[in-house]
Design a protein around this nucleic acid. Sequence first.
DNA 1: CGCGTGATTGAAACCCTTCAAGTTTAGTGG
DNA 2: CCACTAAACTTGAAGGGTTTCAATCACGCG
Lengths: 196, 196
Amino acid sequence: MKEAFYQYLSEKAMVHPEHLSALVDAVTEREFKKSEMLLRLGQVCEHTFFIEQGLTRLYSISEEGVEHILQFAPENWFISERSSVYFHQASMLFIDAIEDSKVVLLDRDFIEMATALSPEFRTYNEYILQNHIRHLQNRIHLLIGSDARNRYLDFIRLYPDLSLRVPQWMIASYLGITPESLSRVRKELARQNYQP
Amino acid sequence: MKEAFYQYLSEKAMVHPEHLSALVDAVTEREFKKSEMLLRLGQVCEHTFFIEQGLTRLYSISEEGVEHILQFAPENWFISERSSVYFHQASMLFIDAIEDSKVVLLDRDFIEMATALSPEFRTYNEYILQNHIRHLQNRIHLLIGSDARNRYLDFIRLYPDLSLRVPQWMIASYLGITPESLSRVRKELARQNYQP
DNA sequence: CGCGTGATTGAAACCCTTCAAGTTTAGTGG
DNA sequence: CCACTAAACTTGAAGGGTTTCAATCACGCG
């Protein structure tokens, strides 16, 4: 139970061993079946999710009914609708499971609680946020500066594991292109004998 | 001297009056002429900038020599290359002044110092980060989901002031389209008697 | 086995870019 | 203050990359 989260806290977040069990006890674990929803549109998101096993995604659906994927989260990633959690707003986004997943649910005040136990945890949280910003900026940079081919190349370079696990049409949605276009990009890369 | 920053700290960051002068004394103020650089490519960014007067931008230049604008910062905004400040990396980006600007320079450890004085400041910093993430996500959403016209409409809706102060070709660069395309979008909007 | 989902492929349409030229605006120096 | 120049913006025509729509193929699952 919660082994992956336990390990993450101790290795990545550098939580002091004596505080580990208190933190792990404060969270709940849940399993989600493939395509089951972790967060629906309009809900106020009460949790940040830590993915122990499986694969999840954060996405919106436009007025025309088109999905736009903002983030994938596989093992050892956090995923949440930060605006909704932090600003207590109704969520504009969905989160669901792409694969059967084992997920840890962190309450909104988890950070506060963890910080009360060991103050260095807030530092780690800041690191997470800074890193997230860096990541989003890279993506914006790619979206305004690169064509379909280069976006895809960047994606498989950054997330070689995901590019095998995520259905192609979802990668297309993440890249902001149509599945047909991605199919053609891949065909062209294969024709040119592209090696990753 | 530093009045805008002083006011910002007390009104927005809710810094306790007794700590204000200590914080304001810890920062330096500088003026930048139009098109003067605040941060060059390859430098490690040592400061976060708070814009008291004027207008600045954060941007990259691609291998082909094309500029891509990641952020504008007018009065009362922060701007910095977070990756460079936080992770001590050489900057991949430029920051320069679009208008003559009066800028406050915050050292890398300003947050730590401010937090030591009043712990609630860290909470405010977290708010800044969360808000930044929300903002970047909105922009990604727009980039993968909207055409040139809607991106522009969204821009002038979000930043009506900026749309008048920023040269059009920079807005185009921010939106990820060419200046020519933006010109045509605007012409079409005018033809349809578009009212903001 | 058949159904549904995902991937592929083709042709036409469309949006946006590119390149080139012309017009307007803004900044500078005489 | 006007004249001059560079930069910014506009406009047109051609071209390219992507989308759209439709049909086909591949595959996993009940």
